[in-house]
Design a protein around this nucleic acid. Structure first.
Lengths: 146, 146
DNA sequence: ATGAATTCCGAGCTAATAGGTAGGAATTAA
DNA sequence: TTAATTCCTACCTATTAGCTCGGAATTCAT
């Protein structure tokens, strides 16, 4: 029960774009250097985010990517769900699932639903802008310690 | 980001033992029939729960398993963590992880921690007895509808 | 116009994991 | 003694994770 690198790297990448928001496009080369991640792998990942409309690409030299909305209008949940699919602990709690109606009235299902709700509650309430603010707070604190 | 069958089947099995609590040992054959799961696979799963001390085995004919504690003293979290390991969305938030101290002060880590806490909060607060009670409630409701 | 920097696309590759099965030894109630 | 059960170890197969690679298309800077 771990998030795959797709979701984790994808979020780190989106965070970089959020830090860079309003300063023009940022290339994957830059992101890969800052976050120490494989550039070609990031290519795969961002394709999904682009198709979902979260980032806009600028092709050619000096090109790159930028957020297509303001950082405060993009939640961590959006990003993760695009890359990982819905974060359900069991398939049976997904909308498209027909029915798992078993003789025991499936009491475990109730639990999967609670877990899913609590996860969604967390990730849907955090925006990319919150992450940026966290970063500045952390930075300030570290500098204060010196 | 889905729980494996080990955790899901394991919990269903423990739920059956909880339903049967105080009525002597229950065999895996019975569990596999009630829950429609492979008996040999359940064998694999219960070995972990036995070694962790959650169930006691009675060998030989008419043998089986029973909970070694009262259903209200076993949480869903205990069961799942034994079978799945800690439910962290990323390795970097585990205790035994050395450090992932990166130059950006890792703001994603904060998020993984929040997710983990919210999941633990749910599963550690539900006991096997709660599941049994849920079942009886559901059953009563269904019967009332007839 | 040319070259360098980029995105875009599809295929392929390897190691690990999930989700089991199979065979047989040990134990015990009837 | 036999049937039912737990226990143990090994094995198997399909899928997925986590990438890499090659090259086409696009665009900026010179």
């Amino acid at each position: 029960m771990i998030l795959s690198t797709k979701g984790r790297y994808g979020l780190k990448m989106m965070y970089e774009f959020a830090l860079n928001y309003g300063k023009g496009p940022m290339s994957l080369k830059e992101v890969s250097q800052k976050q120490q991640l494989s550039e070609t792998y990031l290519e795969q990942i961002i394709a999904h985010l682009r198709k979902a409309g979260l980032v806009t690409s600028i092709r050619g030299a000096q090109g790159g990517y930028e957020l297509s909305k303001k950082p405060e209008d993009i939640t961590v949940g959006e990003v993760i769900k695009i890359l990982e699919g819905p974060l359900a602990p069991s398939d049976c709690v997904l909308d498209d699932e027909p029915d798992c109606s078993r003789a025991d009235y499936c009491v475990t299902r109730v639990i999967w639903e609670k877990i899913m709700d609590s996860i969604n509650n967390v990730i849907d309430s955090i925006t990319l802008n919150d992450m940026v603010n966290d970063y500045y707070k952390l930075k300030q604190k570290k500098e204060g310690e010196r």
